[in-house]
Design a protein around this nucleic acid. Structure first.
Length: 896
RNA sequence: GGGCGAUUAGCUCAGUUGGUUAGAGCGCUUGCUUGACAUGCAAGAGGUCACAGAUUCGAGUUCUGUAUCGCCCACCA
């Protein structure tokens, strides 16, 4: 034994120790030169500003399970970690810090501000990385990347220039989503829609030159935008407004004349059938404006205040302006009515401010040409989503993809590599820092002020992190990667774009499988978030329980792709399981003095003749658990894998085999003792291996404490178990018959125990049992196992008797192996007993009725497979036997 | 408005290609200081598988519809 286990399992001491050791021994690092089939996972880079939440914990646990499993299978593994510079989020954090000093970023100026952000990153940027380490993530830290690294920035510029030169990046004046707090444009994906209880205001616009009406009514949810109205629109087929086309509409408050246009977009059914047209502040109106040659009027500043075009409202905040304008309209009696109105309003995904549609010059990527191949590779199965239902979501988005707004009016990020010559007006994209105009050679050039969307660097992650655009061994070996593990929220933001970028720049898919796991929610079903205050901090769980407990519980609770509901007591499953493992190990240590465990690792069998039925049974169970675990991992059914292992270790190994082993281990047959210990260690060592991907720390600790490190120094580099070969099983005499016999014997023991419990006899109280075997073969087997049975049943005497005649009040129960009797010699009151038996009998009668019904159904008998019919017949025979026995017992008792 | 998911024990959830008696954890009841473990052991109670139809010899599982809850997408002011 390597070291004696403490009675108390203390994960806090164990977990950091092994993590450091693994790092020290360089066990997480992958090297192309090492050979072997590559297996690569790239981490979804968390924001540098991030702190670990349950979503990360789940995401990284799953990745670590895959990665540790593949490593043990001998694959050449790299799990590439890193962080995202998170443009807006990080800039916000640093600006908030500045605010405390009473400064703004403008006070510092661009260069100084960026310097400050870098300083911030140096100081706090590693928080989440360190937290990932606490979780046990076996990332290849030597390859850690940051999306603003020199290398990645180079890749970003390279990609921009290539797309620009190809005509796939363009600049244009369009309506984009504008966050007036972050002061920047957002992509469509960054504007999160939320249903709001708003109002629909019906406003009267005076009409001149129309003898049919003196005003019209338009409906709007954003009255302040009327200041930017340039027209009103009516559906071409709406004849209610005949004669209006030539009329002059007067914009209230500003008294500006408005045109009347006819446009298909207008839905005559909605509101009054007349729409105000505000091209600078609404995407539909913008389109309509373009169709009808209307000049947009922008009435807002970037910070959400009204500009000089807003006339008397200049300088007001947009919401303040709304109030004021409503009051003014009210005064002028221009409000016809106000209705409650539900609509969905975009919010900034970083600060939750209401997004303002705004007309402004921005950079865009043409997505359609990129999307084509990305659709194909998913359709032809080269890239596969797990669960498959996400395929549809992906394709739906891809087939309706819109251009991507990539420019941001912030400072923290990759500056757009476009240059303008003030002399000749030339515009070009170029990597690096040119000193003069590419065309005319003048040195009066300037770079575009904007930076790129954060996701413009993320979409290159699977190859930029391996040194692209350069070519090297790493890139050759580890691209494409294999599994991408992420949440559904970023399929559009990230997954889809990575597929497009991979195909465009590497001419190959970035990964072959996309595993989409669920969202972590609290026990009320709300998404866990800091702002809601409902989050359970994974680090608190690690402190209270352990990282292993956290990982195991999360794995156990996460059915494929389903959302996970968490409350802190759920982590007790993992904690208790860890303790169970620990104590099983301690038990084995107590009995393994002087044993060479490394022998047990290579083979569980010393002498096949020494193997008893239970030894064979547990070996067969191990073999089955190995196969099941492997299959479930391969199908991304992590909860099933965890479940298989939990059941194997707890029920099969601890509850049955360890209990069974006591008769040998506390006995004095040295040969048997050695054999049983060999089986135990073999089974336990393999169970530890199977559990290692899920619970890396405690398995490594026990691996060493048990001395298994004599064969493989670290469990994390040990060879993944294989099921026993059929020949091997035959050689050891492990047959389906033996396995099923032991299963039935467990049933018999349970039955015997429940007899005791039924009569409120303490489990530890020794009573006599008599077993009447079903046939002579079974009698023979039971005879060999008499001692075992006596121990497991805690029986005083255990008699096997072919034609036992139960005395008056002997309770009995039927099992596959025969009938078990517990002579109780008058302890029981016959009348209560009769009543109980009659209830049982009624149940049996009912079941018998069901079975008979089935068997009398000729359709069933003819069409169902033979084995199914046979099962029903067996069942019937069994029931009849039970019924008769119950009757006999009742008769005996009645005769008392 | 479109799409997706969920509905199974008191609670939280599994349940694969239809096939013996629908499972687990927690909670509950009863009994246990049984020489690894009370973070434990043993035995138990508890289910009209949301509802209505259809297919089938047979449906928790397949199909259609309904209801409720949740999520995602969407430019009706």
């Amino acid at each position: 034994m390597a070291s004696k286990l403490e009675k108390h399992y203390d994960p806090k001491a164990i977990e950091p120790k092994w993590y450091d050791k693994w790092i020290e021994e360089d066990l997480f690092h992958g090297d192309p030169a090492a050979g072997g089939e590559p297996y690569c996972v790239v981490i979804p880079p968390p924001n540098v500003t991030g702190i670990l939440h349950m979503g990360h914990a789940l995401n990284n646990t799953i990745q670590d399970i895959l990665v540790r499993w593949r490593r043990m299978q001998g694959r050449n593994v790299v799990w590439l970690p890193g962080t995202d510079h998170a443009g807006i989020a990080t800039q916000n954090v640093v600006e908030r810090a500045l605010k405390k000093e009473g400064k703004t970023r403008e006070d510092l100026g661009r260069d100084k501000f960026i310097e400050r952000v870098w300083e911030w990153r140096e100081e706090y940027g590693n928080t989440i990385i360190n937290q990932l380490k606490k979780l046990g993530s076996s990332c290849d830290w030597e390859r850690e990347r940051f999306t603003m690294d020199a290398g990645l920035s180079d890749a970003v510029a390279e990609v921009f220039v290539r797309l620009y030169d190809k005509g796939l990046i363009y600049r244009g004046n369009y309506i984009i989503n504008w966050c007036s707090r972050c002061h920047t444009a957002l992509s469509d994906e960054e504007s999160e829609h939320a249903d709001m209880n708003g109002k629909l205001y019906y406003i009267r616009y005076p009409v001149r030159g129309d003898n049919k009406r003196d005003h019209i009514v338009v409906a709007t949810t954003r009255p302040e935008t009327l200041l930017g109205d340039v027209a009103v629109a009516v559906n071409p087929n709406d004849d209610r407004y005949e004669g209006i086309d030539a009329a002059e509409i007067i914009l209230p408050v500003l008294d500006r004349p408005l045109k009347v246009i006819r446009d298909e977009f207008v839905d005559p059914e909605f509101g009054t059938g007349i729409v105000k047209v505000t091209p600078a502040h609404d995407p539909n109106d913008f389109e309509m404006g373009n169709r009808h040659g209307l000049e947009p009027i922008n009435v807002m500043n970037g910070d959400g205040t009204m500009n000089e075009a807003a006339g008397p409202y200049e300088g007001m905040d947009r919401f303040e302006c709304r109030k004021k304008i409503l009051a003014d309209l009210e005064k002028a009696k221009l409000i016809e009515k106000i209705e409650d109105h539900k609509n969905s309003v975009g919010h900034c995904y970083r600060c939750d401010t209401v997004v303002e549609p705004r007309l402004s010059p921005q950079w865009f990527v043409k997505m359609k040409p990129l999307a084509e191949r990305a659709v194909e590779v998913v359709k032809d199965g080269s890239v596969e989503f797990v669960p498959a239902r996400w395929t549809k979501v992906y394709l739906e988005w891809m087939e309706n993809i819109r251009d991507w707004c990539i420019s941001r009016q912030i400072w923290w990020g990759h500056r757009i590599p476009v240059f303008y010559c003030d002399d000749c007006g030339h515009e070009w994209a170029e990597k690096g820092a040119p000193a003069a105009c590419q065309k005319c050679g003048a040195d009066k050039i300037r770079q575009d002020e904007d930076v790129l969307d954060t996701w413009f660097s993320s979409w290159l992650w699977p190859f930029s992190t391996f040194g692209w655009p350069g070519s090297n061994e790493d890139l050759k070996c580890y691209y494409p990667s294999h599994d991408l593990v992420t949440a559904s929220e970023i399929i559009f933001f990230w997954v889809a774009r990575m597929i497009m970028a991979g195909l465009e720049f590497m001419d190959d898919i970035p990964f072959s499988k996309v595993y989409i796991h669920g969202t972590v929610r609290d026990d009320k079903g709300l998404k866990m978030s800091k702002s809601l205050g409902n989050s359970i901090d994974p680090l608190d769980i690690i402190k209270e329980f352990s990282a292993d407990a956290l990982r195991f519980s999360l794995t156990m609770l996460t059915a494929t792709g389903q959302d996970v509901y968490i409350s802190s007591e759920k982590f007790e499953i993992g904690r208790n399981f860890g303790t169970k493992l620990w104590n099983a190990a301690r038990f084995m240590q107590m009995h393994s003095e002087g044993l060479d465990v490394s022998e047990a690792l290579s083979s569980p069998v010393e002498d096949a003749a020494l193997l008893c039925a239970d030894d064979k049974h547990i070996l067969a169970s191990l073999s089955e658990a190995v196969a099941d675990c492997e299959e479930n991992l391969g199908r991304y059914r992590f909860n099933d894998a965890a479940h298989v292992l939990y059941d194997f270790v707890w029920s099969k190994f601890c509850d049955w085999y360890v209990e069974y082993s006591k008769e040998t281990l506390y006995g004095d047959d040295a040969d048997r003792k050695r054999q049983v210990l060999k089986v135990m260690h073999h089974v336990f060592a393999n169970a530890l291996k199977l559990l290692h991907p899920i619970m890396p720390f405690v398995t490594e600790e026990l691996w060493h404490a048990m001395g298994y490190n004599a064969s493989d120094e670290y469990i994390m580099r040990a060879q993944w178990p294989k099921s026993f070969a059929p020949d091997q099983m035959t050689e050891w005499g492990i047959t389906p018959e033996i396995v099923s016999y032991v299963d039935s014997r467990h049933e018999l023991v349970r039955t015997g125990r429940s007899l005791k419990a039924d009569y409120s006899i303490a489990p530890s109280k020794k009573v006599d049992f008599v077993i009447k075997p079903a046939d002579s073969d079974i009698a023979h087997l039971l005879e060999q196992d008499q001692v075992t049975l006596r121990n497991l049943l805690r029986a005083e005497e255990l008699q096997l008797d072919d034609d036992y005649q139960p005395d008056k009040a002997t309770p009995s129960a039927l099992g596959k192996l025969g009938t078990i009797y517990m002579p109780i010699k008058g302890i029981i009151d016959p009348s209560t007993e009769i009543e109980r038996l009659k209830e049982q009998q009624a149940q049996v009668e009912k079941n018998l009725g069901n079975v008979n019904g089935k068997l009398q159904n000729m359709d069933f008998v003819k069409k169902a497979p033979k084995h199914v019919v046979a099962q029903q017949e067996d069942k019937k025979a069994e029931l009849i036997e039970t019924r008769d026995k119950l009757q006999r017992l009742i008769d005996t008792l009645s005769n008392l």
